[in-house]
């Protein structure tokens, strides 16, 4: 987790941007939950700055013996609008979410969802088999499987006691 110097001006701007009063209490609750989740998850992979975001998809990361599995919630997006790159052990997911309805057809009476571009970067501990990365998008969830290279896998050695 990144340590960020406290900057009151930034906090204030975040407050204004993230909690416009018209968005209602329920969405406020949602935002609060999400911020607390992000903050207290102790996400060792998170490389992005907490205070400098526009909107960020929620991400779960699971590590098992063979691989790291990253799941990002990207509902309502086109597969082609998401780009995944791996560079120097930094995995970056970026994309753009487009507005779903044309303003000419009507008006939003409630708008809680965020639109626009996003970018999240994760540093991957250890080496992975970069040519075997597999990504799938289904039902609004992007799943990226990063298989570990042999040297990163935890080795279990049985020692015979004589």
């Amino acid at each position: 987790m990144l340590l960020i110097k406290r900057d009151p001006t930034q906090e204030l701007s975040l407050w204004n941007r993230e909690f416009p009063s018209f968005r209602g209490l329920q969405s406020l609750q949602y935002d609060m939950n999400r911020i607390f989740d992000d903050f207290f998850r102790g996400d060792v992979f998170a490389n992005d700055s907490f205070f400098s975001r526009e909107w960020n998809p929620a991400v779960d990361i699971v590590e098992n013996n063979d691989s790291y599995i990253l799941k990002a919630g990207l509902p309502g997006m086109n597969k082609d609008d998401v780009k995944i790159t791996l560079e120097n052990n930094l995995l970056t997911i970026r994309g753009e979410k487009k507005n779903e309805y044309d303003k000419k057809e009507g008006n939003y009476s409630r708008m809680e969802r965020c639109y626009g571009s996003f970018e999240r970067t994760f540093s991957i501990p250890g080496t992975i088999k970069s040519n075997e990365i597999d990504a799938q998008y289904k039902d609004g969830i992007l799943t990226v499987r990063l298989p570990k290279a042999e040297e990163t896998k935890q080795k279990k050695i049985d020692v015979n006691v004589k």
């Binding site: 609750q29 509902p75 708008m111 609004g140």
Partner: peptide, 24 residues
């Protein structure tokens, strides 16, 4: 979880859209 919702109003209807990623 409280799914995030947008409500869009057209002359003939309301469209409520909710984010429920990963559901069947």
């Amino acid at each position: 979880i409280l799914p995030v919702a947008n409500i869009f109003e057209t002359p003939k209807s309301y469209i409520v859209s909710l984010d429920i990623p990963g559901a069947v």
